[in-house]
Amino acid sequence: MEDKPESPRELLAAMRALTRQVRVAQRGTWFPLLVFAAITLVAIPVYRYVPYVDVFGTCRSGPQDKVCMGPNPVELGYWVVALLLAYAAIAAFYVRKSRQRGVGTSIRPYVFAGVALAIVMTAMSIWFTFHPILPPPADPSSTDPARIEAGPAVWLVNGLASPLAAIGLALLVLAWVERYWALLAYTVVYLAIGMVQGNQAIRSSSPWFFLPYLLVPAVVLLLGAAAFAVFRPRPEVRAG
């Protein structure tokens, strides 16, 4: 007895099931998180030991200390180079993974989005140096909170201009590329933590005052990488 040909509805359902299998097979979420955690940890000695280079001429001396409103160009340059190298490594990982599994990869939109966000982050940082959205205090040593009050929209834009926010926004693109709801939920939490941290002013004379800004996101990324590595699905997808 000959098998009956499949109906268009059955063919469409089979195609959708195969598409879902391919997307699951492409997932390597743990690797981008691990790479981003690594470059965040490497940034710690850069922030600590690289001297401030006042390229933008924004430093002002006060009675007790000196305040520089612009970012350190060396730190900014580090993030640009580190992010570009990170996306190159992630692209190579996904291409190698797709060849091993015999399925295509759709990582290109994510890589392009990540590179674009790194460039936009750099441009925004330089723009805000000369057009600050947060008014500087009249006295660099002042701790008067009334002088730096701003609305939620200002805090949001200011937070999104950080390198760690650029990582989070790129992860949103990866969640869309991989159709991965778990990654989407994780990224929302990561961005929320980054936004809260990015808009907190820490006044300290310690040379390690910046450590929470980098260490907390790095730990979150490492925990995410470990979780996605342990619980990653292992579907069997065969080509041909």
Rank of each mutant, 00 (worst) to 15 (best):
W176Y: 15
E178N: 08
I202T: 13
Q197F: 09
L215R: 08
Y180K: 05
M195Y: 11
L184N: 01
G194P: 00
Y186E: 00
L215N: 06
A175P: 01
M195E: 10
N199D: 13
P212D: 07
L191Y: 02
L211P: 00
N199V: 07
W176R: 14
P163M: 05
R179G: 10
A161W: 08
Y190A: 01
V196R: 13
S204V: 06
P207R: 08
M195N: 03
L214C: 08
I202D: 10
A201C: 11
V173D: 03
A182V: 08
L172P: 03
I193Q: 13
A192W: 11
G194L: 04
I193N: 12
V157R: 09
E178A: 09
W181D: 14
R203E: 14
V196K: 13
L164I: 15
P207E: 07
L214W: 06
P217Q: 10
L169A: 15
V157D: 07
Y186A: 00
S206Q: 10
L174P: 00
L211W: 05
L160T: 11
G168E: 00
A175C: 08
T187M: 02
Y186F: 08
Y180G: 06
A185R: 08
S206P: 07
P207L: 04
P163G: 06
R203L: 15
L169D: 03
F210P: 12
W208I: 09
P217Y: 09
A165C: 13
G159F: 04
A192P: 12
A166M: 11
A166E: 02
Q197H: 10
E178M: 09
V189S: 11
L214K: 04
N199T: 14
Q200V: 15
A170M: 09
E178F: 05
Y213E: 09
A192Q: 12
A175N: 03
R179W: 14
L183H: 00
L214S: 02
G159Q: 05
W181I: 12
F210Y: 14
L171N: 01
V157W: 15
W176Q: 13
V157H: 13
R203S: 13
G159A: 11
L160Q: 09
A166Y: 06
L174D: 00
A166G: 14
G198A: 14
A182C: 07
V177R: 03
G198Q: 02
S204W: 07
W181F: 10
A182S: 12
L211E: 03
A175E: 02
S206Y: 05
L160W: 07
L214Y: 08
P212V: 04
L174F: 05
Q200D: 12
V188M: 11
L169F: 15
A185W: 11
A170P: 04
A170W: 03
S204G: 13
S204L: 08
I167Y: 00
P163V: 03
L174W: 01
P212K: 07
I193P: 01
W181Y: 11
A161V: 13
Y180H: 12
A182W: 06
L191T: 00
G194H: 00
I202E: 13
L171F: 04
V216C: 10
